[in-house]
Simulated assay, not measured.
Amino acid sequence: MDNSQDCVLSIKWENDNLVILDQTKLPEKVEYITLQTIEEVWDAIYKLKVRGAPAIGIVAAYGLYISVRNSKAADFESFYQELRKNSDYVASSRPTAVNLFWALKRMEKRALDSKNKTLEEIKMDLLNEAHAIRDEDEAMCKSIGENLLTLLKDGMTILTHCNAGGLATARYGTALSPIFLAKDKGWNIKVFADETRPLLQGARLTVWELMQYGVDVTLICDNMAAHVMSKGWIDAVITGCDRVAANGDAANKIGTYGLAVLAKAHNIPFYIAAPSSTIDIDTPDGGKIVIEERSEEEVSCGFGKRTAPIGVKVYNPAFDVTPNHLITAIVTEKGILRPPYKEAIEIILKK
């Protein structure tokens, strides 16, 4: 982007330290924190200080390097067992975002590929692998934006959900990437952003991020989407995703499925922006995706005070699954996938 210097980076590697933007403090405060231990990395992922599938994967990769950079292992086998133990620990922080496991497995593979080197050389290889994961994500997100831009026109209004911008990735984002690129082209793209209950990632993060970039954005509550669509104000819905099953079913922030149903009812195209790393060919369909359930306090005490009676039962899934028949296209850095998705995914992953 021409204005990329104005984008706020969510992840930095500075002075041999992992530094992240604490997204739980936005929009009131822009505060960076340094993660120096594997426990701090786990905590940052679990508590959503870093969030968004690509960003979680990047932080996990750096975290795994941090966990062994001062290792006193005497040989590769003991070093690798230490690495695997730490990898399993980080993997336990969030169950749904496939990028987390993808990045950790990639780091483990890099260690195995370097096993004939000295331990210090292996450590450096792991750091370089984490850098590569971050750099590749930035390039990948820009390509997703360029591909999505071919489906849009100047003057359109987009509805988005949760946060799939630069805060959720290395830079650019996935669902927001075409909006930033359109802005750079001089297009007049408007955005309606869902508040995204219960943690308000749309209100706190997406709106803040778009305003920072000078994009015309309007905030709405999640339950206003149908009304806005009925007015004819929405030309397309674009969301990110945390996992795409082999058949094209896609898991994303809770509420995405409902948007897809509404978009279908109003004849509005529904696009999923998905890095190829989120495609999980080992998961046959959305019914096999593990859905994270989070603390009841996020719902009952979500605004800094109790908003529901003490003792009420709360169901708080973090994600839902959008069936492939509701998805107009899945847009990756390698190209645009259209139904039938199983065949399209098999072709795209061979590129």
Results as ranks from 00 to 15, higher is better:
Thr196Cys: 12
Met224Glu: 13
Leu200Ala: 12
Ile310Asp: 12
Glu40Gly: 06
Ala60Ser: 14
Ala53Tyr: 00
Gln212Leu: 12
Asn147Leu: 07
Ser10Glu: 02
Asn128Pro: 00
Asp216Ile: 03
Arg171Phe: 01
Thr157Trp: 01
Ser92Asp: 13
Gly214Asp: 06
Ala170Gln: 10
Leu48Lys: 02
Ala111Gln: 03
Arg106Asn: 15
Trp208Phe: 15
Thr322Glu: 08
Ala103Lys: 00
Cys162Gly: 10
Val90Phe: 04
Val90His: 06
Ile58Val: 07
Phe303Thr: 14
Ala260Asp: 07
Lys305Ala: 14
Arg338Met: 11
Val237His: 04
Tyr65Pro: 04
Ala193Gln: 01
Lys85Val: 11
Met156Ala: 06
Asn247Pro: 03
Leu149Glu: 09
Ile56Asp: 06
Thr160Lys: 07
Asn316Cys: 08
Arg94Lys: 14
Thr96Lys: 01
Arg197Asn: 06
Ile254Asp: 02
Glu138Asn: 06
Gln23Asn: 08
Ala260Thr: 08
Lys85Trp: 00
Ile11Glu: 02
Arg110Pro: 00
Glu77Lys: 14
Val207Arg: 02
Ile58Leu: 06
Leu176Cys: 08
Leu181Phe: 09
Asp2Arg: 14
His325Thr: 09
Gly173Phe: 04
Glu333His: 02
Ile272Gln: 06
Ile336Val: 15
Lys29Val: 14
Arg110His: 02
Met224Arg: 08
Lys190Trp: 00
Cys241Met: 09
Gln212Asp: 14
Cys221Leu: 12
Ala170Ile: 03
Trp187Glu: 06
Ile289Ser: 05
Leu167Asp: 01
Asn223Ser: 14
Lys142Glu: 14
Gly232Asn: 08
Ala251Met: 03
Ala308Glu: 04
Pro275Glu: 07
Asp113Arg: 07
Glu296Lys: 14
Asp137Ile: 02
Ile238Tyr: 03
Thr196Ala: 13
Ile279Tyr: 00
Ala130Glu: 05
Gly155Ala: 10
Asn163Cys: 08
Met156Asn: 13
Lys123Gly: 09
Lys253Arg: 05
Trp13Glu: 04
Glu343Ile: 13
Lys153Tyr: 07
Ser177Asn: 05
Asp184Gly: 13
Ile133Tyr: 00
Ile336Asp: 04
Asn116Lys: 13
Asp75Lys: 08
Thr278Met: 02
Ala132Asp: 13
Val290Ser: 11
Ala91Cys: 02
Ala164Gly: 12
Lys123His: 04
Tyr213Trp: 11
Ala168Ser: 13
Leu64Tyr: 07
Gln212Pro: 00
Asn99His: 09
Lys334Gln: 12
Asp137Cys: 09
Asn99Pro: 05
Ser114Pro: 04
Ala170Gly: 15
Glu14Ala: 06
Asn163Ile: 03
Ser87Tyr: 01
Ala139Phe: 04
Leu262Asp: 03
Pro54Leu: 06
Asn17Lys: 15
Ile45Asp: 03
Phe270Tyr: 14
Ala139Asp: 11
Thr96Asp: 03
Asn316Glu: 08
Ala265Asn: 15
Lys109Ser: 12
Leu200Tyr: 12
Ser230Asn: 14
Ala139Cys: 00
Gly214Cys: 06
Gly258Ser: 10
Phe79Thr: 04
Ala236Ser: 12
Ala246Gly: 08
Tyr257Asn: 13
Ile220Ala: 10
Ser67Phe: 03
Lys313Gly: 13
Ala55Glu: 02
Tyr213Ala: 15
Glu136Asp: 15
Ile144Glu: 01
Glu346Gly: 09
Asn252Arg: 02
Ser71Ile: 11
Leu337Cys: 11
Ile56Thr: 08
Lys264Ala: 15
Ala273Ile: 05
Leu337Ala: 05
Ala236Glu: 01
Ala318Thr: 09
Lys25Phe: 10
Thr96Trp: 00
Gln23Asp: 07
Gly286Glu: 01
